[in-house]
């Protein structure tokens, strides 16, 4: 079982006064265990809808999402979600916010062990001295750190991140990217992150999935990020290869995202991700792939 998360032929249709609107059409993506996937696309293209379906917060119209051999139905603690807004309960401290889930998921453990789990993750995200403060006393960046700790503390099989750093300033964003990468590497989690920041995607991800514009959004292209881990931001920022990939992504967003990879009556085949090629970049242009069918 090499595929950890299988999103197959995913469709999402919303009813509108003008009739049903297909937001996501034929979205297929396979993710290996321990992989970090970034999903990029324009605002409103449906990338958050895909994430929301993987989280079980939105129903799937057609197709299936299978996580570790089990179909995803509804939300559950096996998937940790970090939202764009930290969504903390304002009357609880950071620690109590994390404990809320920990108490549920580790209900057989002792009170001490549960405390230790929350303290461990809150310290790792840099809130060792601030964990007993309420959200109102924390900066936006610190609240988002708490959101990350809360997701990791439940030891989920999969992390789903919906533009987690979208509301932060650029410098705080970079600090939190390092916090996230550190935890991700330590716990060897599988992660799917929605972002529209090309630099963020390149720094964090193993593969970058580019989505076409909605409606009927789907996978437009997949980029394999060749940089070795652990990654050094400074070295990456000076690497010519980094700028080549960056331009490739920007080009996709500016030019190619408007075109569907295949005619809508001919479903595109799954991306070539299930058979990774050694090439640094492999393209899963559906016109090419569709020829095989």
């Amino acid at each position: 079982m090499s595929q950890f998360l299988e999103i197959s032929r995913l469709h999402k249709t919303f009813p509108t006064p003008k009739g049903p609107l297909t937001v996501v059409k034929d979205f297929t993506l396979h993710i290996r265990r321990g992989e970090f996937i970034a999903l990029i696309g324009h605002s409103g293209c449906g990338k958050s809808t895909v994430l929301s379906m993987a989280a079980g917060l939105t129903d799937v119209t057609e197709g299936a999402i299978i996580l570790a051999g089990k179909e995803v139905v509804g939300a559950g603690p096996d998937r940790g979600v970090v939202f764009q807004a930290p969504c903390l309960l304002p009357w609880f401290t950071a620690f109590e916010n994390v404990m809320l889930g920990v108490d549920q998921v580790y209900y057989t453990a002792s009170r001490l062990e549960r405390r230790q789990i929350a303290e461990y993750y809150l310290s790792l995200v840099g809130l060792a001295d601030a964990m007993h403060k309420r959200p109102a006393e924390l900066s936006q960046g610190m609240r988002q750190r708490c959101g990350i700790a809360r997701a990791f503390a439940l030891s989920p099989k999969m992390l789903l991140l919906d533009e987690p750093f979208g509301m932060l300033d650029n410098l705080t964003k970079m600090e939190l990217q390092d916090v996230l990468l550190d935890l991700w590497q330590r716990d060897q989690k599988t992660a799917l992150m929605v972002t529209h920041d090309v630099d963020e995607a390149l720094y964090l991800a193993d593969r970058i999935v580019m989505m076409t514009d909605g409606p009927e959004a789907t996978v437009g292209d997949i980029l394999e990020v060749p940089f070795a881990r652990p990654r050094d931001r400074r070295a990456m920022l000076e690497n010519p290869e980094y700028y080549r990939l960056r331009e490739y992504l920007i080009h996709f967003l500016n030019e190619r995202s408007h075109h569907r990879p295949a005619s809508s009556d001919q479903p595109p085949s799954p991306p070539a991700a299930s058979a990774p090629t050694p090439a640094a970049i492999h393209r899963s242009h559906a016109p090419v792939a569709a020829g095989r069918h």
Binding site: P77, V105, A109, Q116, I117, Y120, A128, L154, S155
Partner: peptide
């Protein structure tokens, strides 16, 4: 970044199936 160092323990327990 904080310069405090403290000992942290992560108990080796698995989440329950709710």
């Amino acid at each position: 970044k904080q310069t405090v160092s403290r000992k942290l323990v992560l108990p080796d327990i698995l989440p329950e199936d709710l």
